[in-house]
Design a protein around this nucleic acid. Structure first.
Lengths: 293, 293
DNA sequence: AGAGGTTACGGGCAGCGTAAGGATC
DNA sequence: GATCCTTACGCTGCCCGTAACCTCT
């Protein structure tokens, strides 16, 4: 009898079939079958009735399920109370969206490396939508994105939000009302398949009308540089453009409205729970809070 | 983390050293070392302080020990409540003494085979002294012998006792008192390194004096046949010679005293507990009781 | 030197995935 | 035939034992 056999037994019992358990556990179906067979041999007892509709627990199986759950709980306790994430030679696949890359990512990685030197970190940058898919896909352990992810299986830690401000090149010629800039000048924005893009599009239509032109770009720093060179204007996180505002490369303006503040979360799967991911999510929160002052 | 790792951890903690745990678990010392190292890696935590005198638990180790014991208890519960010995393809090495061979062994084996058809049974015949050693040695799983075995690690199930009666050949010429037979005729007995031999020797010296001659033989059936042919007399279990008494091949006599009744037990190791051995011990008890009527 | 534990290395076996094989509706 | 689960089989990787090594008394 092994822990893996018991865990497999648990999923087959809960999902009522080898096939479904195999899918849940990311194993081939014969592998699950073999584990159950091995467990039944080890205990010398038949645990399931094989029906056409799947597997149904026998009386012995019902009793074993209780023990399997007890053992699972103790394992969780061990993971929570004994395991030291700092000592684990784990790998952690972190996905971040570009806003984070351009703001507190370096500090975050530094904090992560100093807290968990043994952990092998792999950073992926993508738009929030893809990060969400990857997380649910289990190809990421932690995603820092515009959240939260509304799935029962995901835990979300809220991070400090980014307030957006309208910026333009100081060289840009302005006639009369600042609100008219948006009519006369293209608006450079986040990539098309992002929440800020959609928000901006809606709000532009509402506040400016169909005259407004929207130029999305997948590179945030490219956006800002384009704004600085006068190719257009845009609304970007204040913290990312502080330097340029200070030294005059960019100037803020106010057309009378703003896109929504960008809300970020650090999100990770709750089942199976990764205490490492959870802890790193809190590092992200602390680092981000410090970055925002 | 595996059950084996936890069990190994438990023994190293309890015995305070890799070497002692390896001995207890019948493993090589590096194997135990490797299991502990693997567990520590899996948990990312140091569980032992390596001192010259052996291994001492760290704080984390102390906490883990509690969980390990809980898991061990649940495993025991599973073994007791779920495992079906009849379904186990186990092997069972049974040692029996010759008195049993000559009495209810066939019925016992038949009962065992019908109750546990999947179990691979191996029968060894030897004197009780050697059976005891083999059991403590773990080269037997169950021993049916003149017991009990007074070791804390052994469980003993008491079996029906064999009453001994004095027998002789009907052809043997008897002068006067039957008690004098023992003075004039050799006494044929169980083998030298057995309890009945020692008992008989003591009692003969006490009741008959140094004139008495004792001829031990390691074959019980040989003893009885020798008595039947008049080579000597002897005290043997009543149940083994009923047939010969009935058809006149042998006759009982009474010198006024008897050797001790032979007390048998079915004995097996309590740690690790084999529910199969325990259950088979009870089969032996039932079969023996039926044999004795 | 001796009693402790760890590292190195070759071999055997357990357990995986792919592919084919029943059974039952 | 569709939908289950099991069997067959080759392969990889883990884990054991032997042997050599390290460290402290």
């Amino acid at each position: 009898m092994t822990f893996e056999q018991l865990r497999t037994f648990f999923w087959v019992a809960r999902l009522g079939g080898v096939r479904r358990a195999a899918e849940q556990m990311h194993l081939s179906q014969p592998a699950v079958s073999a584990r159950i067979a091995a467990l039944e041999t080890a205990l010398g007892a038949v645990l399931f009735e094989r029906a056409q509709s799947g597997m149904r627990l026998t009386k012995r199986g019902e009793k074993l399920l209780v023990y399997a759950e007890q053992i699972h709980r103790i394992q969780e306790d061990i993971k929570a109370n004994i395991v030291d994430p700092a000592g684990l030679e784990a790998q952690l696949r972190v996905g971040v969206s570009e806003t984070v890359v351009q703001s507190w990512l370096p500090e975050f990685v530094a904090g992560l490396r100093s807290e968990y030197p043994m952990v092998d970190v792999e950073i992926t940058v993508d738009v929030s939508h893809n990060l969400r898919d990857s997380l649910l896909n289990r190809s990421l352990d932690l995603a820092i994105l515009m959240g939260p992810i509304s799935e029962f299986s995901v835990d979300n830690i809220e991070l400090p939000a980014f307030e957006l401000v309208w910026i333009r090149s100081p060289a840009l010629h302005v006639d009369g009302d600042e609100a008219d800039i948006l009519r006369s000048t293209p608006v450079i924005s986040y990539a098309r398949n992002t929440r800020p893009y959609q928000d901006l599009k809606t709000k532009l239509l509402e506040n400016v009308g169909s005259d407004a032109r929207l130029f999305p770009s997948s590179s945030l720093s490219a956006c800002i540089r384009m704004v600085a060179t006068g190719l257009g204007v845009g609304a970007f996180p204040l913290h990312l453009i502080k330097r340029q505002l200070y030294n005059g490369e960019l100037v803020a303006f106010d057309p009378g409205w703003r896109p929504d503040t960008l809300r970020f979360t650090a999100s990770f799967l709750g089942e199976p729970k990764s205490h490492l991911a959870e802890s790193v999510a809190h590092i992200a929160k602390d680092v981000a809070a410090a970055y925002m002052e």
